[in-house]
Amino acid sequence: MSTAIVTGAGRGIGRAIALRLARDGHAVAVNDVDAESAEAVAKEIGGRSMAVPADVTDRDAVFAMVDAVAGELGSVDVMVANAGIAQVKTLLEVTPDDLRTMFSVNVFGVVYCLQAAATRMITQGGGGKIINAASIAGHAGFSLLGHYSATKFAVRGITQAAAKELAQHQITVNSYCPGIVGTDMWDLIDEKMGGYLGNEKGETLEEFSKLIALGRVQTPDDVAGFVSYLAGPDSNYMTGQSVMIDGGIVMV
């Protein structure tokens, strides 16, 4: 049985991915910085699952997490580096602390997950799948989300480089790029952007949603369905890609 780790899976997109991969037949390790949330989702999954609370910005903790999952569930075959944060600010306002925090989670965390998972997969033999959280903001920079956009552009570059380096081990590396998703993160973006744009709560989300060709806000399950493909055998010949799954906002 394949074993998947999903980071930031205590809620939102990560939770939906964890639940979907479990339905697909994977054993699932649910990671979150909040132990209670991770445990709740693991309990929701039941069966071959476990909660692995850890902070993805702590490299040693990420390696320990991977070791714990391999020890408990037998292997690590899929790593979904989903954990991420956003912050709304103009680039002129961004502080050194803002940059450190944003890059620590969205970039360093992705690299640490990649390093730990790939090291385990190489030792195991037989290949594996590493799946990173990027964003439409990694294909087109968004105003008021400049430093967030920078981290997602970085994830695209890391994904391409890792795909080339790890191909010899039959490890594929791809990223998923969501758009406007109905989650707590987008509630925060709506609220904070509203302050800059003079909008009431909900108005910014409504304005952005008009950009969606399919005419509706994305759900976490929409993202999870694509990650299911990336984690499964049908994507075995796909690597180095950062694919939009956004309802048709950014088309390249």
Rank of each mutant, 00 (worst) to 15 (best):
M1D: 06
M1E: 05
S2V: 10
A4Q: 13
I5R: 09
A9C: 10
A9D: 07
G12D: 11
I13C: 10
A18Y: 13
L19A: 12
L21M: 13
G25I: 14
H26A: 08
V28G: 10
V30E: 02
N31H: 03
V33Y: 05
D34N: 15
A35P: 15
E36W: 08
A38S: 10
I45P: 04
G47S: 15
A51G: 05
A51Y: 03
D55T: 09
R59P: 00
R59F: 00
D60Y: 00
A61S: 10
A61Y: 02
M65G: 01
V66K: 06
V69W: 12
E72M: 13
A83D: 12
A83F: 14
G84K: 02
A86Q: 14
T90G: 11
T90P: 07
L91Q: 08
V94D: 00
L99M: 14
L99G: 02
R100K: 08
T101Q: 10
F103P: 03
V105E: 01
V105H: 00
V107R: 01
V110H: 03
Y112T: 04
L114G: 06
L114F: 02
L114I: 07
L114Q: 06
A118I: 05
R120T: 07
T123H: 11
T123F: 08
Q124C: 08
G126E: 08
G127A: 08
G128S: 08
K129I: 02
I130H: 03
I130C: 09
I130Q: 05
N132Q: 07
A133C: 14
H139P: 04
G141E: 07
S143F: 09
L145K: 06
G146L: 00
Y148T: 06
S149W: 00
A150T: 05
V155S: 02
Q160W: 04
Q160V: 12
Q160E: 15
A161G: 14
A162L: 06
A162I: 04
Q170I: 07
I171M: 08
N174T: 06
M185V: 13
W186G: 00
L188W: 03
M193T: 15
G195N: 05
G198Y: 05
E200C: 01
K201I: 08
E203L: 03
T204I: 09
E206K: 15
F208T: 03
K210R: 14
L211D: 10
L211N: 12
D221T: 11
V227F: 04
S228L: 08
L230I: 12
P233A: 11
N236Y: 04
M238R: 02
T239Y: 05
I245V: 15
D246V: 14
D246P: 13
I249Q: 05
V250H: 07
M251C: 07
